[in-house]
């Protein structure tokens, strides 16, 4: 087993709105990412993927609040750390985070080199301009970006180029964990592929220690990450190797997700896509039983009453259901 770069144990966080309401967006989530490995986080919008990303970096600025659990980054427990200190000591260096739609949030009046200087100076205020420039050039060349990009303004770059630039700038400090939140969702397929290729190269070449990749597009995750974790309404419902999660899902929700995959491959037209009826529960007031019960084809009376815990299979997979692996497989065989 490789060195564990990020470990999260039973992390629970919530939003407290201005009206005093709580949104239970991350509920007892545990995960581990080893050096050189990647974890994908899947689930429909609103299930808590982005909140989990912020939470596991210790980025607790209102209205997001830490409740309980532990976050260990490369051996250091950062749970309970002051978020301002997190910003100084963790962000960029230990964990690099590329938020959703980051590329459209760049200040349009600054050249790319300016963002580079910001990132490096945040951790080394005395770094000189020339050294910074050379360092950036070197990284850009490694990942196949022309160094001329450094002298450009964001609007002068195409969408795909802008996103790859954002990623390159984010990893300047060789973070131990790179978290990319929907980094390619707004791009055309070819640009998306270039982004994916670059992220895989970063991991492969050790320019980032490990990767967490968030998207609701499963075929994409399948091609990017070693493991996949499926979230539903703030909780993990399944976690395991990517291949198993896609081709042999256990949880009825993951099963539904996999049944909605669309790829331009022969045979697709004969497959009937499965739609998951209904909508996820409101996280202000999540059900006390299984959170998926209301939409589940296989629901039992006790699912509605009792909370359902995670269970592990012999093969090291984890899922949240009252049924055993065998019972689930049988249910799926019978349709």
């Amino acid at each position: 087993m490789g060195k564990v770069l990020l470990e999260v144990r039973e992390l629970t966080t919530r939003y407290i709105t201005r009206f005093g309401e709580s949104v239970y967006a991350v509920d007892h989530v545990s995960l581990k990412v080893e050096e050189g490995k990647s974890l994908g986080i899947a689930g429909e919008s609103g299930c808590g993927k982005s909140t989990l990303a912020l939470s596991l970096m210790g980025y607790y600025f209102a209205p997001l609040h830490y409740m309980s659990g532990e976050i260990i980054v490369d051996g250091h427990n950062i749970s309970g750390m002051n978020p301002d200190d997190v910003r100084k000591a963790i962000l960029g260096k230990e964990i690099a985070y590329i938020p959703q739609a980051a590329m459209n949030a760049l200040n349009p009046t600054q050249k790319i080199i300016h963002f580079v200087e910001d990132v490096i100076r945040a951790h080394d205020p005395s770094a000189d301009k020339k050294a910074i420039y050379e360092r950036a050039c070197k990284l850009f060349e490694t990942v196949g970006l022309p160094p001329q990009v450094l002298e450009k303004y964001p609007v002068e770059l195409s969408g795909g180029m802008k996103q790859r630039t954002v990623i390159a700038v984010s990893v300047l400090l060789s973070p131990k964990v790179l978290i990319a939140d929907e980094p390619s969702s707004a791009l055309d397929v070819t640009s998306q592929k270039m982004v994916i290729k670059m992220i895989r190269q970063l991991l492969h070449d050790g320019l980032v220690g490990s990767l967490i990749f968030i998207t609701h597009e499963l075929p994409l995750l399948y091609n990017v990450t070693d493991d996949i974790m499926v979230m539903y309404a703030g909780q993990i419902v399944e976690k395991g190797a990517a291949r198993e999660a896609v081709f042999d899902p256990l949880h009825p929700y993951s099963k539904g997700l996999m049944g909605s995959i669309i790829v331009p491959e022969e045979g697709l037209r004969e497959v009937k896509l499965t739609a998951i009826p209904g909508v996820p529960p409101n996280l202000k007031n999540p059900p006390s039983g299984c959170r998926f019960a209301e939409r589940c084809k296989y629901v039992q009376p006790e699912c509605i009453v009792n909370a359902v815990g995670l269970r592990s299979t012999e093969g090291g997979r984890v899922y949240r259901c009252i049924f055993s692996e065998k019972e689930l497989r049988e249910a799926y065989r019978n349709g």
Binding site: V189, T190, Q192, K193, M194, I196, K197, R200, E217, L218, P219, L220, Y222, N223, V246, I261, V263, P264, E265, E266, G267
Partner: peptide, 29 residues
């Protein structure tokens, strides 16, 4: 069109979508 594309553009669109049954070839970009 999808199983027997003739135009390079169509081929590229198809190739660049992530696949699950076939290998997704990253070397084309």
């Amino acid at each position: 069109v999808i199983l027997n594309p003739k135009e390079p553009y169509t081929k590229r669109l198809i190739n660049d979508v992530p696949k699950i049954y076939e290998e997704w070839d990253l070397s084309t970009v």
